[in-house]
Amino acid sequence: MTADISFVDLILEASLLVQLVMLILMGMSVVSWAMIIKRSKVLKEATKESETFEDKFWSGADLAQIYQDVKKRKDDLSGTEEIFYSGFTEFLRLRKSNADSPAFIMEGTGRSMRVAVSREVEDLETNLPFLATVGSISPYIGLFGTVWGIMHAFIALGEVKQATLAMVAPGIAEALIATAMVYLLQFQR
């Protein structure tokens, strides 16, 4: 005995509310995957740039020369180079006006670098709040669709004198599809 119900038929025959839930879950999944792929590329690029700069920095080259090289590209800096540029710029500025206070110079340089680190971390963490929100709310949205589908299955069951599995199977199947979509979203986390 086989059923002639396909996945697409179950979606098309689902109630409007369950279809809306599935559409919302699918939309959140597509947007989330796009953000995850983009973030992955950004993080790989940041890691590569950081390693390249660290190799240059620890090579024993003159820091003033590295600074001049970085300064030429100051509009295109990111990551470790941006932190270095920010710190070295502040170091040079403070050294001119406070040459006799090395502790003050180092404190100001450190503060400037901490601000630069904070900005770079913020750039790298772009979209994380959205992804966390999607990961948190998607089970509840899917559960709502599941409960709605099962509720419709039992309402249909209560309206007949003789119940059969064929009568409740489509409602339960549409509910389980909503649940499956939740698991797809949770897989992303």
Rank of each mutant, 00 (worst) to 15 (best):
A166K: 12
G79S: 08
L94M: 12
A3I: 14
G135M: 04
L43Q: 15
L77P: 15
L157W: 11
T179Q: 05
G87D: 07
V168K: 04
F104Q: 15
A180L: 09
L131I: 10
T146V: 11
A156Q: 11
R119P: 09
V121I: 15
E45C: 09
A173H: 06
E122F: 15
F104A: 13
A156C: 04
I105Q: 04
T179H: 11
F187Y: 14
L10F: 11
S40V: 01
L92I: 06
Y85R: 07
V18I: 03
P129C: 07
Q65W: 08
L23H: 02
A14D: 00
G110R: 12
V21F: 00
Y140A: 14
E13W: 11
T179G: 08
Y67D: 07
Y85S: 11
L63E: 06
E13G: 12
A103F: 05
T109P: 01
S136D: 10
L12R: 09
D62R: 01
G79I: 10
S136H: 07
I37S: 00
L94N: 06
I141Q: 01
W58E: 09
E122Y: 14
R114E: 12
T146D: 02
F104W: 12
E82V: 04
F187N: 05
L92W: 02
A132N: 02
I37T: 03
S97F: 15
A61W: 05
S86A: 14
G135Y: 02
E54G: 06
L143W: 10
L20R: 01
R114L: 13
S97L: 13
Q162M: 11
R39Q: 10
M106S: 10
F91S: 03
Y85V: 14
T89I: 04
P102A: 01
M181G: 03
D55P: 04
S29M: 04
L92R: 02
